[in-house]
Design a binder for these strands. Structure first.
Length: 479
RNA sequence: CGGGGCGUGGCGCAGCCUGGAUAGCGCACCUGCCUUGGGAGCAGGGGGUCGGUGGUUCAAAUCCACUCGCCCCGACCA
């Protein structure tokens, strides 16, 4: 696997940024659009998103959520209602000021997130404790005027799902917040094969308007952390700002407690960075639009001998719901096709040639390391399923090994700085809980608290100020 | 938003410094022959006006100004 066949892709190790751009474009996931910072998600990329949606949406529905759709445009007066929220988002909001040729009386924000417009509706809809909880999600686009963009990882417009729920009290809302962050963790680890650490954000890193932000953070191969999903407990901040009250069993009016949560197309960027190699993309089987590519070895009278078998193999796999393609194009050689489908990230390849026909077998080849399994046609379906499962598992194990090897502990600031300079990665270090110390670390290393981690033990001292530590956060540079 | 780099057929680049004739190369594409178990070979062919605008000049891909976009580092950012 060391030899590099696709020479147009720069080495991942040498220059991960160039590698990333090169891979997503050669694998045909994305193209640049005419507007700065905006991208076209092409069919190969969008199909991954559809698979992400399918799996997550099922989880949301299973836990009682329903989908709805709220408008793209938000009146300025609504956006301004929750003070902290406005402050957090106003630098990156795009505005509509004209309707046709008429200047609008009130500017309309293109949603950067939908808390405000959804809360304005909730205040109309929620009257009684019997109306609660409200569990609504929407799959939509949002717009944020980002200064620096990179396809999938940070774009001006992106696709996401945003869940917005309302509950009777803190306990119920907090339970929801945690339920969702666990759904995210399980999905990202099991389906995307990306290990994450789950935890709370510090006050400084918290979502604008939230009481508590829970996050799942993944470590990318360059040692930087990627925020993969967040789930916020909003308390009654928004219900007070938007006047969302219900009459409880005890005949008193109470404010609802809310949550909001989301994951975005950024997950695709994380998937590419985590699993790809110098031959291109590797898509985990569970979300791969094409899980198996069949390449007939076009030799001699292959159209009469090999091709019919290849077609049968395809049908048999389709019958057990495996997403499979047959590349029977005549104009390309098998070797060319191997490289091409590897670059596109198809996790498993089936080769069928004259030799295999004689032996009533096919050759299965893993995208990860080109491990070959020669399997009997009789056991085709089971062999393929097993191999796909193995690939899914191996991708996760590989990523987890990397993550663990790049997670260090330190209780000494100089050592901390050394670690950050060299390999980067997660560093666990005791912290007193003060923002001043958090800022100092950021100034000196550019690392931020990704999650505040577990509670510190008796005797742990803050790595910056030396006072008793409250937590052992995970620090890292971030995307 | 600050510093740096780059925009030339679909992609990757050369040419620019030191202005001058038909803008060149590799890949991709089209036609034909021949091949096919790791990106085959030969022959023929099509396609660009040099990111945009303005200027200097007899003459601009090349010099100057402005502008748009992309990439990297930083700041900012859920």
């Amino acid at each position: 696997m060391s030899e590099k066949l696709v020479k147009e892709i720069p080495s991942k190790k040498d220059d991960i940024s160039k590698w990333y751009i090169s891979v997503i474009r050669k694998a045909d996931l994305v193209d640049y659009a005419p507007v700065k910072g905006m991208m076209v998600i092409k069919p190969a990329g969008y199909a991954i998103w559809e698979n992400i949606q399918k799996i997550l949406d099922r989880e949301f529905k299973k836990t009682g959520h329903q989908n709805a759709y709220f408008p793209l445009l938000i009146p300025e007066s609504l956006l301004n209602k929750e003070a902290e929220h406005v402050e957090g988002f106003s630098p990156e909001v795009a505005w509509v000021t004209l309707g046709g040729n008429e200047e609008l009386e009130e500017r309309l924000a293109i949603r950067p997130t939908s808390e405000s417009i959804i809360c304005s509706m909730y205040s109309k809809w929620i009257m009684s404790w019997r109306d609660l909880p409200v569990l609504i999600n929407q799959w939509v686009n949002v717009l944020r005027w980002e200064k620096v963009t990179r396809p999938f990882l940070r774009t001006t417009e992106f696709l996401w799902q945003e869940g917005h729920t309302a509950h009777r009290d803190k306990e119920d809302a907090m339970e929801e917040t945690l339920r969702i962050i666990n759904i995210y963790k399980n999905f990202i680890e099991n389906s995307l094969a990306i290990p994450v650490i789950m935890g709370k954000k510090s006050d400084k890193e918290r979502f604008a308007g939230a009481v508590e932000t829970y996050t799942v953070e993944a470590l990318m191969p360059d040692g930087k952390a990627l925020q993969a999903g967040t789930s916020h407990y909003l308390g009654d901040n928004f219900s007070k700002a938007f006047d969302i009250k219900y009459e409880d069993k005890d005949n008193t009016l109470k404010y609802v407690h809310q949550t909001s949560w989301g994951v975005s197309t950024r997950l695709i960027g994380g998937l590419v960075l985590t699993h790809g190699d110098d031959n291109g993309l590797i898509i985990p089987p569970k979300v791969a639009p094409v899980q198996v590519i069949i390449i007939p070895i076009s030799k001699g009278n292959w159209k009469e001998s090999v091709l019919p078998v290849a077609k049968t193999v395809k049908e048999r796999l389709e019958n057990v719901n495996i997403r499979v393609n047959l590349d029977d194009r005549e104009e390309y050689t098998p070797g060319w096709k191997f490289s091409e489908w590897e670059m596109r990230g198809v996790p498993l390849r089936i080769e069928i040639g004259p030799k295999d026909i004689e032996k009533a077998q096919v050759v299965l080849v893993s995208r990860i390391d080109r491990e070959k399994r020669f399997v009997s046609l009789n056991s085709l379906e089971d062999s393929v399923k097993t191999f796909l499962d193995d690939i899914q598992k191996n991708l996760f194990e590989k990523a987890k090994k990397f993550r663990d090897e790049h997670t260090k502990s330190s209780d000494n600031l100089d050592e901390f700085k050394e670690y950050m300079k060299e390999g980067r990665g997660f560093i666990k270090a005791p912290w007193c809980g003060e923002e001043a110390c958090e800022l100092k670390i950021k100034e000196e290393t550019t690392a931020t608290i990704r999650t505040i981690g577990e509670k510190a033990k008796e005797g742990d001292r803050c790595i910056v100020c030396g006072k008793p530590a409250k937590y052992i956060p995970f620090f890292a540079k971030s995307y």
